[in-house]
Amino acid sequence: MGFKLLSKLLVYLTASIMAIASPLAFSVDSSGEYPTVSEIPVGEVRLYQIADGVWSHIATQSFDGAVYPSNGLIVRDGDELLLIDTAWGAKNTAALLAEIEKQIGLPVTRAVSTHFHDDRVGGVDVLRAAGVATYASPSTRRLAEVEGNEIPTHSLEGLSSSGDAVRFGPVELFYPGAAHSTDNLIVYVPSASVLYGGCAIYELSRTSAGNVADADLAEWPTSIERIQQHYPEAQFVIPGHGLPGGLDLLKHTTNVVKAHTNRSVVE
């Protein structure tokens, strides 16, 4: 069995187990497998329904001669939608809004960016022009300005110390501490036991640490421990890039980060 097929099978099995364990909360999309990078042309966006009122959005972007996937989250909030992270750029984010209108038909009224990198804030200006209120932590807003990236308009308070959590509509926002970046936030959907790890969490097929220019490698494993301790009931975990899975993604990420750190020390 090929690795790609095995990865998709694991996603399907995880979703099936969740649907059985929580039949009222989960209505997993039966329309197909989780979209992969090879299936999404740059400039297009796919939506994948995880649970009743919960979707991931998947886009792709060219970077350094390669094409990478990027995940975000959409959560229903009454007759409105909360968006977590842009679709990595203005063109993708405009396509995301169009796809949401086509498939869901509810307005996106608020959006949260989970850290300051372009795959999370690139497209904020498109959201703002569409009347979406954009939010991020003060740290993310400051770092985005320093980096020359787009800056969300509103500040999220109460997320300055490791372990801080605040309720934001249908989700809980959690600051686990520094990891992929010093400002990275985690998003949890309690009604569906869905954990969105953003770039602080890796997919299972990833074996290298990737972009760690703004990471705190020493603190990252401790931050992941905080996530595990705060959300032990999480059933569906979405990484910032690639295929979702279960809580095993947290341990896998820790292993990859520690291996990278150990290699760096040896070198």
Rank of each mutant, 00 (worst) to 15 (best):
V124D: 05
E80M: 14
N262T: 11
A21P: 04
L96G: 03
E157R: 15
T140E: 02
F116I: 03
A178S: 13
D119G: 01
K8L: 09
S264I: 15
G122D: 08
E99C: 13
L156V: 08
K251C: 15
A130E: 07
G246A: 09
A66F: 09
V112W: 04
G72S: 04
V108G: 02
Q49N: 15
W55P: 01
S264W: 15
V166T: 10
A129C: 04
D79W: 15
G131Q: 14
Q103M: 11
T109I: 11
V45D: 03
E203M: 03
G198F: 01
E101I: 15
E233A: 08
L243H: 12
V189P: 00
F63T: 10
D85G: 00
P239E: 02
R167K: 07
N71M: 04
G198S: 05
V265Q: 06
A95G: 11
Q235Y: 07
V11Y: 15
P152R: 02
A213K: 12
S137F: 04
V42S: 10
K8P: 00
Q103Y: 15
Y202E: 11
N262K: 14
G245R: 10
L13F: 13
I224W: 01
L156S: 01
R263D: 10
S162Q: 15
D119W: 00
I20F: 14
I20E: 05
T261G: 12
V28T: 08
A179G: 12
G89P: 03
E39T: 06
L204S: 06
N211A: 09
A19P: 13
V11N: 15
L250E: 02
V189G: 01
I40G: 08
I100V: 13
G158W: 15
A15R: 06
A213C: 12
P138D: 13
H154P: 03
E150H: 15
H252T: 14
F168H: 06
G105Y: 15
E101M: 14
S38I: 12
L185A: 02
D164F: 13
S70F: 02
E147V: 12
T93S: 14
Q235K: 14
Y48G: 08
S31W: 11
I227Y: 00
D164T: 12
P170K: 07
L195P: 02
E233P: 09
S191R: 08
N255L: 12
C199H: 01
L217E: 07
V54E: 02
T140D: 02
I50Q: 06
D79P: 09
S62F: 07
M18Q: 09
V108E: 02
D79I: 10
S30R: 09
F63Q: 09
A90S: 13
L217H: 05
P170Y: 08
I238R: 01
I74H: 00
I100W: 02
G240N: 03
A215R: 11
D118Q: 13
G65Q: 04
T134S: 11
D214P: 15
T60A: 05
A90D: 15
L185E: 01
Y202K: 07
A51C: 12
H252D: 03
Y175D: 02
D79C: 13
S161M: 14
L143R: 10
K258P: 15
L217F: 04
A87W: 00
L81C: 04
A94N: 10
I58E: 05
Q49F: 11
E150I: 04
V265I: 05
L195V: 08
V124N: 09
L5P: 12
Q229L: 14
G65H: 05
V132H: 01
E99A: 13
T153E: 11
G242F: 02
L73W: 01
M1F: 02
L250P: 02
Y188T: 03
L82N: 09
A136E: 02
Y34M: 11
R226T: 05
P176S: 12
E172L: 13
Y175T: 03
S208K: 11
P244D: 03
D29G: 08
G123S: 02
G246N: 08
A215D: 13
E225T: 07
G43M: 10
L106Y: 15
V171M: 15
V11A: 10
D216M: 11
A213G: 11
N149Q: 13
M1H: 03
I227H: 01
T222D: 11
Q228G: 12
D216S: 12
